[in-house]
Design a protein around this nucleic acid. Structure first.
Lengths: 106, 106
DNA sequence: GGTTTCTGCAACCATGGAGTTGCACATCAA
DNA sequence: TTGATGTGCAACTCCATGGTTGCAGAAACC
């Protein structure tokens, strides 16, 4: 039953800025300051977004000297995608069987 | 480039109550009033959630007499899942190639 | 017709979250 | 040592959103 606790992860994905951060990190790992240089918002705002993404397990942080380098976790997104696909097709199967039942009872 | 405009859909999915509504509708279609009977919140709150889900294309509404019956759109969730899976594995491929490059340059 | 049962609209409240600024602390380079 | 760069912490503002209540209108049932 992996359908539980999906909402927090989707909440993390449900922000346009966060998606831009993710796609940027999908290109190459980067620090919060480096990211902030390419965005119209403050470094602190970027850090907050990174915290959210990290809490959702979509990003990992690695300290290297005085800087913290963030990398995207693509496999997490992939497995999430597979979960979604499974759930969606399960719904479809169930609803189509209900439909058939209704039609046969008509 | 289907990576654009994903955030709004995930924003719709990023609410626990909305997930409960979706899974309930995944069992069988229902009206807002019928749904509200099974939730600790008002019918109006349910209606607002259904509006959000409908705007995200995750649910469809069909008027039947005086009631409006909502059904979940499983194929939408499935295709969303496939998109996610694709994006995530693309990130993984790119990052692992960067890693190899860094190691060979070491 | 009268009553019940749905839906629809509007106003309202309160919390969370996205963003800001300011400052202190740590690390690297000169 | 000094300066530059990067991070961490805290307080603050603003508005989107999840929730409420109240009432009016339409459809079904008696």
């Amino acid at each position: 039953m992996p359908a539980a606790q999906l909402a927090p992860v989707f909440a993390a994905l449900g922000d346009e800025t966060r998606w831009q951060i993710l796609t940027t990190l999908g290109t190459a790992p980067a620090s919060a300051s480096a990211l902030a240089a390419g965005f119209p918002i403050s470094r602190q705002a970027i850090v907050k977004h990174l915290d959210v993404l990290q809490a959702a397990g979509l990003v990992e942080a690695a300290r290297r000297g005085r800087e913290v380098r963030y990398s995207v976790l693509g496999d997490r997104l992939s497995s999430l995608g597979r979960d979604l696909e499974r759930i969606g097709s399960a719904w479809d199967r169930r609803l189509s069987s209900i439909k058939e039942l209704a039609e046969s009872e008509q």
